[in-house]
C-alpha cells in the first residue's frame, strides 16, 4: 500500500511538473492546441493525486489529513482542483501557467516531508477534525487561485505583447471578478473551517478559541479577506487595491500554514 502510494505520488509530481512546462510552451509558442494538452495533463495529474491520497487513507485507516506531509499534499490537491475549475469555467488556460508553479512548489514541499504514517494522538481523533481540515484545503486552494489572479492583474499592465496574451487574459474588470469569485469561495470555506475548528477545539481542549498563534493567524487571514471584500464595494478601490489585498491574503495563508508551525509556539504545532 505504502509503496503504491509512493509510486502514485511520484507520478503526480511528474504530471504537475509536465503540466506546468506545457502551459509555458503554450504561452511561448502561442498555440491554442497546446493549452488543451496542458489542461489534460493537469487533469490527469489531479486524478492520480486523488488516487494517491485515497490509497494513503486506506493504508492509514483514517483521513490522511493529520500531519505536515498529508496536509501539504492535500493543499496542493485543493489548489490543483480549484485552479482547474476556474481554468475550465472561465476558459482561461493562462491561469494554469501561473497556478501550476505554485501547485508544484507546494507538492514539492510535501515531497520533502516525512511520509511515515503515525498513529493519532487522542485529541486528533475527531470527525470535526476531518471536516475542519477538508474545508481548509478548499479555502486555501481558492485563496491560491485568487492570489495568482491578483498577480496576473498586477502584471497585466506590464505586458508588452499586445497580441496573444492580451487575447488570452481577460480584461481587468473580468479578472477582478474572477478573483472575487475565488476569494469568495475561499472566504466561505475559511469561515466554515474556523467554525468547525472551534467546535473541535472545544471538545478536545475545552476551549473553542484560545488565541493560539495558529488561530490568531487564521483570524488575521480572515480579516484581510474581509477587507478585500469591502474594498471591492467601492468602485475606486476595485481592481488594483483589491488585487494587492488578494496577494497579501495569500501571504497570510502561507504564514498561517507554514510560518506559525515553524516560527511560533502553540497547540497546533504538531500539525
Amino acid at each position: 500500500m505504502i509503496h503504491l502510494e509512493n509510486v502514485l505520488f511520484t507520478i503526480t509530481l511528474i504530471m504537475y511538473l509536465a503540466a506546468m512546462l506545457i502551459y509555458f510552451v503554450f504561452i511561448a509558442a502561442k498555440k491554442d492546441a497546446v493549452s488543451k494538452v496542458a489542461v489534460t495533463v493537469h487533469i490527469a495529474g489531479l486524478f492520480i493525486h486523488t488516487a494517491a491520497i485515497v490509497v494513503r487513507g486506506i493504508a492509514a485507516g483514517r483521513l490522511p489529513l493529520t500531519n505536515q506531509y498529508e496536509f501539504a499534499s492535500a493543499f496542493a490537491w485543493g489548489l490543483s482542483l480549484v485552479s482547474l475549475l476556474f481554468i475550465v469555467k472561465f476558459k482561461f488556460p493562462v491561469l494554469g501557467a501561473f497556478a501550476a508553479p505554485v501547485t508544484f512548489l507546494i507538492i514539492g514541499y510535501a515531497a520533502m516531508q516525512s511520509k511515515t504514517i503515525h498513529s493519532l494522538m487522542p485529541a486528533l481523533k475527531s470527525g470535526w477534525l476531518g471536516v475542519h481540515v477538508s474545508t481548509a484545503i478548499i479555502a486555501y486552494g481558492s485563496f491560491g487561485v485568487s492570489f495568482v489572479l491578483g498577480i496576473i492583474f498586477l502584471l497585466r499592465d506590464k505586458l508588452k505583447d499586445r497580441g496573444f496574451l492580451d487575447q488570452h487574459i481577460p480584461n481587468k474588470e473580468k479578472l477582478d471578478l474572477i478573483s472575487y469569485r475565488s476569494a469568495a469561495l475561499g472566504m466561505l470555506f475559511l469561515t466554515f473551517t474556523m467554525i468547525t475548528g472551534a467546535i473541535w477545539a472545544e471538545r478536545a481542549w475545552g476551549s473553542y478559541w484560545s488565541w493560539d498563534p495558529k488561530e490568531t493567524w487564521s483570524l488575521v487571514t480572515w480579516i484581510v479577506y474581509a477587507v478585500y471584500l469591502h474594498l471591492r464595494i467601492r468602485r475606486g478601490w476595485r481592481g488594483r487595491s483589491a488585487a494587492i489585498f488578494a496577494v497579501i491574503g495569500f501571504i497570510c495563508v502561507m504564514f498561517t500554514y507554514v510560518g506559525v508551525n515553524t516560527l511560533l509556539p502553540g497547540v497546533h504545532s504538531y500539525a
Partner: peptide
C-alpha cells in the same frame, strides 16, 4: 470600518 479591520489585523499579528 476598513481602517478598523486593518488595525485589528495588525494588532493580532503583533500580539501573536
Amino acid at each position: 470600518a476598513i481602517v478598523l479591520l486593518v488595525v485589528l489585523a495588525i494588532a493580532c499579528s503583533i500580539a501573536s
